[in-house]
Design a protein around this nucleic acid. Structure first.
Lengths: 142, 142
DNA sequence: TTAGTTGCAAATATTTTGCAACCGC
DNA sequence: GCGGTTGCAAAATATTTGCAACTAA
């Protein structure tokens, strides 16, 4: 997404352009996939201080504007990622914890089928848990 | 799953058969999909008291034994369901909140493709968010 | 008897909220 | 200056853990 774009998108909806929002968006971009807490850490590491509640509120705004998205890559906290990447869904290996981003095309057969049955899938939010065949399955992955 | 089966499965792994475990398993069966807190409520409603931490610990054991599974049907708490049902995955509509259980066959094209790429999906844990075409999309669902 | 379980309270972890001070436009 | 934002602390939620008492086998 172009530099200009997100500034404009904030303004056009009556939101203000603040340094905190700029920092959070940059942090999400740089981190790839990050929890609110990790975003907080990244922002503090790079620049000035920012409060955790501001991070939560900012991520909410940015998601509403379609600038970031979140997915659940663990059974714990959600992770946010930038939309400047192409839309994608995630695979998470319960053995090696590796996260792989996959092109939505792979989902086409599924989404087509679901749509025929009256359901439009939110591909960007989807996370498929499982395990890599190169990872020996453990008790945990059962 | 047969009555006998789960008792045996507990014992064979060195676990004890306690009234709490029996009550939790029954509650999950009867509730369909339920959060730990809802399971607590159901157990208390039907029989005697039980502690919330026991519910958490019991669900963990039951899941390890393959007697229940959990999925994330909201951005909040996980929901547990019995395995006496056939394996299935879930669709969740962000508009009407309706949860639909879907046969794994529908996922075949996807899982085959992923397996070809070296990833075995955990179908039972999968939840697809989106919206019913019969639900008018709202801001929330964007 | 004895090792696994439970209840309870306290500790963690995560997210939300009220509100006064602050600042982008 | 006005109204949206932020920081801070406290509240609300959700989950985990230590440990003594309890109990299934």
């Amino acid at each position: 997404m172009a530099e200009q774009d997100w500034r404009e998108r904030l303004r056009s909806r009556g939101y203000r352009l603040t340094p905190q929002r700029e920092m959070v968006l940059r942090a999400v971009d740089e981190l790839g996939h990050a929890t609110p807490d990790e975003v907080l850490g990244k922002v503090r590491e790079q620049s000035s201080a920012i409060n955790i509640s501001t991070v939560y509120r900012t991520l909410e705004v940015l998601e509403e504007l379609g600038l970031v998205r979140h997915a659940h890559l663990s059974d714990r906290a959600p992770t946010y990622h930038s939309i400047s990447d192409h839309e994608h869904f995630h695979l998470v290996c319960r053995n090696c914890q590796k996260v792989v981003s996959v092109d939505p095309d792979v989902l086409k057969p599924l989404t087509d089928r679901l749509e025929a049955d009256g359901f439009v899938a939110d591909v960007g939010h989807l996370t498929v848990f499982g395990h890599c065949t190169t990872c020996p399955p453990t008790e945990e992955s059962s």
